[in-house]
Design a protein around this nucleic acid. Sequence first.
DNA 1: ATGGCTTATTGTATAAGA
Length: 259
Amino acid sequence: MTTPFKLATWNVNSLNVRLPHVLDWLATHRPDALCLQETKQEDSKFPYAALAEAGFHAVHHGQKTYNGVAIISPHALEAVHVDLPEFEDSQKRIIAATIQGVRVVSAYVVNGQAVDSDKYQYKLRWLAAFEAWIKQELAQHPQLAVLGDYNIAPEDRDCHDPAAWEGQVLVSAPEREAFQRLLALGLSDSFRLFHPEAGQFSWWDYRMAGFRRNLGMRIDHILISEALKAQAIACEIDKAPRKLERPSDHTPVVLHLAR
DNA sequence: ATGGCTTATTGTATAAGA
């Protein structure tokens, strides 16, 4: 006897603007956990009441203007943790909670802006600290799912024009190596368990009619431990919200487990 | 063609995203 369990991640690019889309999506999909990134609001502004009215608990770690992460669930959110340990950081990029025995991480990885920038160096340092922490989480929680906006397209098939993007931020070798080190801890890129094809993206630039022309990148990922891999039955990118009025530039990625 | 669009901000231009 197995029970369906649905996990999702979505960079909403301002929850203040996107709350109606999020509430509609929650009502339609009824996930067991939805991880958000780029809420761009302080905890005092987070819509706990609207979510509660819809039947969801939530935990949020945010700040004004930038960053901000949350986990929304109809179930209890236990052992909540924020930030990377032993990494001085004023930017709110990490929240984790245990939901029905599954350790769920919502992560907003540093963008990095350009490979010759200080922000890129911060991205690589941040990723090293993230890897060290995820290693600890995995040791403590065999059933681990690390969801979020990784701001890394792991392979050329995850980029609409690898030649044009070669060496750029999001696809550069040091970033891709950092992603591979996460996998080497014992995690799997759940989307690729089911979909080997190129041209599957989770983000499209607002400019240049990027979505209509499918000029995108697959940078939002759900990494899962071996124990969860054994339960995985499907993983999809839901492009529907990207077609709405005033969409986020990212769209949800959804993992289905049978537990 | 280094921009194109969208968001937030003690705003009327700037910074950041990816």
